[in-house]
Design a protein around this nucleic acid. Sequence first.
DNA 1: GAATACATCTATGAATACATTGAAAGGCGG
DNA 2: CCGCCTTTCAATGTATTCATAGATGTATTC
Lengths: 216, 216
Amino acid sequence: MNKNMENSEERAYRSIVELILTNEYKPGDFLLEVELASKLNMSRTPVSRALARLVTEGFLERMKKKGCFIPLPTPEDAKQVFFAREAIASYVASAAALNSTKEDIAKLRNVVEKEREAFLSKNKKLEAKLNEDFHLGLAQLSGNQYLQKCCRNLFWRSNVYIFYFDSFYRDTEIPQLTPLQHNEILDAIEAKDSELASELMCKHIRRTYEMLIKMR
Amino acid sequence: MNKNMENSEERAYRSIVELILTNEYKPGDFLLEVELASKLNMSRTPVSRALARLVTEGFLERMKKKGCFIPLPTPEDAKQVFFAREAIASYVASAAALNSTKEDIAKLRNVVEKEREAFLSKNKKLEAKLNEDFHLGLAQLSGNQYLQKCCRNLFWRSNVYIFYFDSFYRDTEIPQLTPLQHNEILDAIEAKDSELASELMCKHIRRTYEMLIKMR
DNA sequence: GAATACATCTATGAATACATTGAAAGGCGG
DNA sequence: CCGCCTTTCAATGTATTCATAGATGTATTC
């Protein structure tokens, strides 16, 4: 039925992530296989496999015979997610500083520029996507597929918090600061200053986290 | 047919990990769904799901229509695995230094003591298991489920190297040093010296890696 | 009226049947 | 003999069907 060349599991996976990141499903909601299958016009099998993957990636949790659900945000969990992100992303930044070429950096500069534009035009969804592009792009520059994978999982998981608190988030200075901080990080990477890149990334993530906990 | 109360996927998962860690399947080998299914006396479904999980965990790779296989060790991959382990395990160690109680530490001391005994009695398999217990136990003490998960995946992945080079490995001083280094790390954690714990863990992992690359 | 045993319902777990596809063997023409 | 095309096959990808576990509601008993 579907002409797309990607396999169904991959499509299901992306669709589900999309549904979550666009907040169509909220924390606490159950993602039922049959429901998703009919929504996405495919059988339970690929949906089920995609869900299983999201669970092993730590993005969803599973209750036996109840279904998968988006974990409810808790202060403790937020702490763990952001601490883990700090730990790994700072390594990634320092590794990127050592490995990246002019072209790599130019690409990310471009992303940041688009981020700034997206902020000015208040295109929330695009902004989120570009933020993801920046962080995951950096992870790729680390040249370490394992750190890259960890980064991706943690980034997505932390996004749940950002979306959950979106209404607050928008009123802070964070969205405005983001492109600036991203550029500072790129500056450090361009200067091959791995120590500084690591530190800036750490602070960048911590700032988001600290904003988050102030909102409870 | 099967009397075990755990579900089949979990059993398949454990069995497959076991088959790999005991070197019954070696790097480069394909793990075929049908073959495993018949070997483990279950249908393709749980086997397939278990394999998928191992792939997302980075423990196996998948070639479409060919099967999952244990990635061939390469110098580049080894570098990535051990670098990632260093990065994460050092964070884990420093977090453990901040969180752990007397009882936690006592438990790990016990593991290390058994490690020493296992080394003396040349019980290779037990030694490997205890090493795992130590590192994953420490990950648990970090109190961060995300870092814990990353740690576990990377540990297993790095184990492929250790088993692959087992014959060389045995002739080095590493197996003898391991319990000593583990105890040093525990000392630092007990003294709540997170900086030192982190540094020692980093060196501990790097030593294994450097031994590895000398063997090519 | 409360507690327990039992029926029922819902969602996943597992098995099986069927479709797809990548790779390699083998045939055919040059 | 070599290279290209076709065919076949082996392995996974997907759908469907059946089984089962956990939750919930209900009736019966004390």
